[in-house]
């Protein structure tokens, strides 16, 4: 499965004066069988890229929504391998990024994990508990398979940290909108705007903002200064509560996408 790269997607959207709408869902929640269709529906409704979470038993960077979602997936017996296979079955032409924690990747083996990602058309990988200093071996393996490794920049990061993250990040830089785990309270737009500005002077790689973005207004605010807006917990919650009929969720995604237009 060949899908567009993150680079080409961000370039295309910039030409259209739009920010990228990047949606996070947990692989295997609400359902693994349904994951390919869910991905297709979200893209149809306006997602420019997707982040698929690989469930982990101890997700220290995630808030209650994604924790609970991961746990539901694990309780259903979902494995990283099964999530990757389901991604391969989704017929979409947007970049798909997987997001997870290091230990499941380690146990599969970095090379086997990267091979599988490549085989199912994954464009990039985000590892919540991997910082550039510890990532050498993985990045080398990822690069040899054409996989982008996205690193996170935090509002607490000083200049030397921002340098390291900006230099190491491929595909895009994930700017964490505020200190905290995924999904907690919003606001603090100023802090993330400053962080994006600090990153801009260091890299030409696109910058997407995530953590706590939960409404079209948040997306619109972020789209003014960032190249992408990442929505996770709010979507995971809506999907958990929606049942089989996703019409309302998809309508909401359309509103999120509309909010990325800068013009």
């Amino acid at each position: 499965m060949v899908r567009p790269t993150l680079d080409s997607t961000f370039r295309l959207l910039a030409d259209r004066n739009e920010a990228a709408l990047i949606l996070f869902i947990t692989g295997g929640d609400p359902s693994l069988e349904d994951l390919p269709t869910l991905i297709e529906d979200l893209v149809e409704a306006g997602a420019d890229a997707l982040e698929i979470g690989l469930p982990f038993s101890d997700p220290i960077a995630d808030g209650p929504s994604i924790q609970a979602s991961s746990q539901r997936a694990l309780d259903r017996g979902v494995t990283p391998r099964a999530v990757l296979e389901a991604i391969g079955r989704a017929r979409v032409d947007v970049p798909v990024v997987v997001m997870g924690y290091l230990n499941p990747m380690l146990q599969m083996g970095f090379e086997a994990f990267a091979d599988r990602c490549q085989a199912v058309g994954v464009s990039g990988v985000i590892v919540c508990d991997l910082i550039p200093e510890e990532a050498g071996e993985w990045v080398q393996i990822a690069q040899s398979r054409g996989l982008a490794t996205v690193f996170l920049a935090a509002p607490t990061s000083a200049a030397d940290r921002l340098d390291a993250v900006a230099n190491a990040s491929c595909g895009f830089v994930y700017a964490v909108a505020r200190t905290g785990v995924t999904g907690s309270q919003a606001e603090q737009a100023n802090e993330s705007e400053r962080l994006v500005a600090d990153l801009r002077v260091r890299t030409s790689t696109p910058i997407a903002v995530g953590f706590g973005i939960s409404t079209p207004d948040h997306v619109a605010a972020v789209s003014r200064f960032a190249d992408g807006a990442i929505v996770g917990s709010a979507l995971v919650d809506r999907l958990a509560n929606s049942g089989a009929d996703r019409k309302d969720v998809l309508d909401w995604v359309r509103q999120l996408k509309a909010a990325t237009h800068r013009g």
Partner: peptide, 12 residues
């Protein structure tokens, strides 16, 4: 050993 943490904690 090492340091496998979210970036936010690295400065601390």
């Amino acid at each position: 050993g090492g340091r496998y943490v979210p970036e936010t904690l690295v400065p601390a």
